[in-house]
């Protein structure tokens, strides 16, 4: 069973809820697919049990021993990625888009395309189980390929088929689709704002397309009751179950600052609502 937590826009509380649910579910495999802001693991002290390079792209590389400094590569590169410094040609890897034109144009076979590591991928052992995560290189972009890798890694370490909770990628692009496809259920965390509702609609249409059981949770629902009602109406019209309405609670900020899951705050109103939500969700997905 794979449950993916989604949001559309950033900042709706997706990670807070993903963390709380994985606490409540106890024996789970965690996957952090929010590779641009991988905050899931900040909650846990852990030890990496596996680390691998993730090759996300290819970049041009100039072999100085073969380069005759004819300059054709610099001339034809449309990305201004080749420059000359101290009489040596070199590739600025931030500018290189990996098209490979220079490797074709070089008559001296001095340029080749080489794998570029764009992230480290880890399996991290935490007190309460395992977490599959990535740390991207600066300036790298997350891709569907990286998400696919993270989920595959989790599967390798989850032979007993435990519940997997995925902190999904934000947005509605390729990484999100890669976090949804093949999972069994999706929980969309939304907040009562105009952009929250718009994003909910977009993410829901993706889930619907991939025929995934979809649930909605309205986080901080009481900061704008009017829009919260609009969200409920949208959910009702589309037969989506709202499994939770979580009140605004300053304890959530405190829990983030102390890096303690909100479930450890017994008196917190948000915690209480999340616990109720989990009971409902559990009965629906089992």
């Amino acid at each position: 069973m794979e449950l993916v937590i989604l949001s559309g826009k950033g900042g709706t509380g997706k990670t807070t809820i993903a963390t709380a649910l994985s606490e409540l579910a106890k024996d789970v495999m965690r996957v952090d697919c929010d590779v641009d802001a991988p905050n899931f693991y900040l909650y846990y002290q852990g030890q990496d049990v596996e680390r691998k390079d993730f090759i996300g792209s290819k970049k041009a590389f100039i072999d100085k021993s073969k380069c005759v400094k004819c300059g054709i590569c610099k001339e034809i590169c449309r990305f201004d990625a080749i420059d000359i410094k101290k009489d040596q040609y070199f590739v600025d890897s931030f500018s290189c888009e990996g098209c490979g034109l220079c490797t074709i144009a070089c008559n001296f076979k001095a340029i080749s395309m080489q794998d570029e590591k764009t992230a480290d991928v880890y399996i991290t052992k935490i007190e309460k189980g395992l977490l599959s995560r990535a740390q991207m290189e600066i300036g790298a972009d997350g891709s569907g390929k990286l998400i696919t890798e993270l989920r595959e890694n989790a599967k390798r370490y989850n032979k007993e088929n435990k519940l997997t909770i995925i902190d999904g990628s934000p947005g509605i692009g390729c990484p999100v689709i890669s976090s949804i496809t093949g999972s069994n259920a999706a929980l969309i965390v939304t907040e009562p704002s105009k952009s929250g509702l718009e994003d909910l609609k977009r993410v829901y249409s993706l889930c619907k397309h991939f025929k995934i059981m979809t649930f909605v949770c309205i986080n901080k629902y009481d900061i704008n009751i009017e829009v919260a009602n609009d969200i409920e109406e949208f959910a009702n019209n589309n037969n989506i179950t709202i499994v939770g309405k979580i009140p605004f609670d300053e304890k959530v900020m405190e829990s983030i600052n102390n890096l303690k899951p909100i479930t450890e705050y017994e008196e917190s109103r948000a915690n209480k609502a999340i616990r109720e939500m989990w009971e409902i969700l559990k009965s629906k997905i089992n």
């Binding site: 802001a37 900040l42 600066i138 300036g139 600052n257």
Partner: peptide, 19 residues
Amino acid sequence: EPSNFGLHDLKLAIELVKM
């Protein structure tokens, strides 16, 4: 912003501008 998430992401941004 003053949170652990903020600090984590700030460190990434600092790394970038330093480059």
